[in-house]
Design a protein around this nucleic acid. Structure first.
Length: 130
DNA sequence: ATAATGACATGTT
DNA sequence: TAACATGCCATTA
């Protein structure tokens, strides 16, 4: 299922790094599925609270380098900001920061090990200049 | 089966 | 820079 794959990718984002929704989607094999990533993370809130705290949802932001959640039952933009700050990423008051400075850029090798298809690896390289 | 719904991305104004 | 429009596509109703 798409959901499982996406969650797996999100779990691979290292401490102090971030990835955009579109980037996660691409790595999960859904080149244009950015919105789905957001959907999945939102629908997974309860599972996260259920104990699975190894899902770093706060490391996923939009490609403009801006926190884009509007606030849900359990998470708020401010919470995400705090989480990022705790990892050394200072988010400005307008909820933006320099994403390129912290973007998760796995090497093609790593991507291969993640079970990613060659065509997607190529797209990653082309788009994010690995 | 059809249509609406997003924690998005990009190009145009 | 910021607002707007259009494209996206798995889920859900």
């Amino acid at each position: 299922m798409i959901k499982k794959k996406v969650l797996k990718i999100v779990q691979m984002i290292p401490y102090g790094k971030v990835a955009s929704y579109g980037q996660v989607a691409l790595m999960a094999g859904i080149p244009r599925g950015a919105r789905m990533v957001g959907q999945i993370l939102r629908n997974t809130e309860e599972d996260i609270l259920a104990g699975m705290d190894d899902l770093p949802w706060w490391r996923v932001i939009n490609n403009a380098g801006r926190i884009s959640i509007k606030g849900t039952k359990y998470h708020t933009p401010l919470m995400q900001k705090e989480k990022l700050a705790a990892e050394g990423i200072e988010v400005k008051d307008d909820l933006t920061f320099d994403i390129e400075k912290y973007r998760f850029r796995p090497s093609p090798d790593q991507l291969g090990k993640m079970g990613l298809d060659d065509k997607f690896i190529d797209l990653m390289v082309e788009k994010f200049f690995i």
